[in-house]
Design a protein around this nucleic acid. Sequence first.
DNA 1: TCGACTTTGTGCATAGCTTCACAAAGGCAC
DNA 2: GTGCCTTTGTGAAGCTATGCACAAAGTCGA
Lengths: 232, 232
Amino acid sequence: MIRRIPQARDRGIPDATVARLPLYLRALNGMAERGTATVSSEDLALAAGVNSAKLRKDLSHLGSYGTRGVGYDVQYLIYQISRELGLTQDWAVAIVGVGNLGRALANYGGFASRGFRIAGLLDADPHVVGDRIAGLVVEHADELESVIKKRGVSIVVLATPATAAQQVCDRVIAAGVTSILNFAPVVLAVPDGVDVRKVDLSIELQILAFHEQRKANGGPIMAEEWPDGVVM
Amino acid sequence: MIRRIPQARDRGIPDATVARLPLYLRALNGMAERGTATVSSEDLALAAGVNSAKLRKDLSHLGSYGTRGVGYDVQYLIYQISRELGLTQDWAVAIVGVGNLGRALANYGGFASRGFRIAGLLDADPHVVGDRIAGLVVEHADELESVIKKRGVSIVVLATPATAAQQVCDRVIAAGVTSILNFAPVVLAVPDGVDVRKVDLSIELQILAFHEQRKANGGPIMAEEWPDGVVM
DNA sequence: TCGACTTTGTGCATAGCTTCACAAAGGCAC
DNA sequence: GTGCCTTTGTGAAGCTATGCACAAAGTCGA
């Protein structure tokens, strides 16, 4: 039974807000690079593609970091959001499954730039073990537990085939990992206290197809374009 | 101003429901492969990792396809969900940007199996153009408009660098595409009527880091483990 | 045919998220 | 100072999603 204790500065940030903070952070970094010193909620909201009231409410969960009449100090806000997200520390990430997707992830620059360090690449296929990818040598999946413990891995990325995902998942949890990013198209069963986030390419396409079909067959349409009385 | 017109069988399916339908579909396909003929909402909900009341409410938006006392016919439900999602037709997909991620996507089996046919691979880099990947020859990005029109592409996957994404996005929209799956870490500006879904690997990791940090520093914790009176 | 049992479909209460609208707070010119 | 202007932070209202709980509807055995 997990129960939150309200604290002095309540850390109960809504999930929806947490999911947007990285977006704000990215927009702020762009502004910092262009030399912008302060930004209003209106402008930042525009850059992040959200409503400005929502942005202000999101930021208000972190504290009161703005200045009325002026806006937010870009550098200061970057620091506060980074701290809140835990990006001021270094996270060791292991990628399990070095197929096409695993390789793409290993080479993806967006990780390293945010405090995520790839600390291990593992695969069960002996033909892949030993390959050097993005500066790391692929290790055998048998080494999973030892890699996690020796290198302090706290986040595991699953890029294995669907059939292997649950088994690998069980092993990394047994090894003490409680944060998993799952690319395999399966619903993982995990105990309480373990966070799983899922990225499913096929599901995203299916959602797009739904809306695309709807656009084609008079779904949500311009009311003006619908011939009067044609309702079937 | 877009306004929905309620229809005889109201097609106003909530977004949250649409996002879960592919999940149900996957679970149902697994059951069909194992020869299951009917399934109760309880069992299907378990397989899909959702609450059974939610599952029933989701399915009730499609119609009344269950039999009280028995459950749902697996094959029939597969058909109904597929039809609703638009998977009974063939969708031509083009992937723009054939870097590591683009290659992984091109080789990803999950697309073809659901009515998504990769109809084009494009890249701006002359060293990549001409490569054969997953049975297709990479074409130059200059051919974008012609590929979209000649092959009836209706969904475009953006796997370009962030800097090129908006420009490519503008071009595919000008060519008539209204559904985009964006892997580039930018907020795309698009006109009304265009659907963009975003997959952002770095954001997912940041969300995990937030929760991981919270687990480490007395965030949501076991109430029992918190020393009495220590509230700062 | 009947009654016990199973499971759906949904009304309702609740929780969470979004958006509006505005008072409070601060900067700046004079 | 003083007053005007800008922008934040947030109360309140409305909307969407969730989950309980149960009546309605169907199956199945006797």
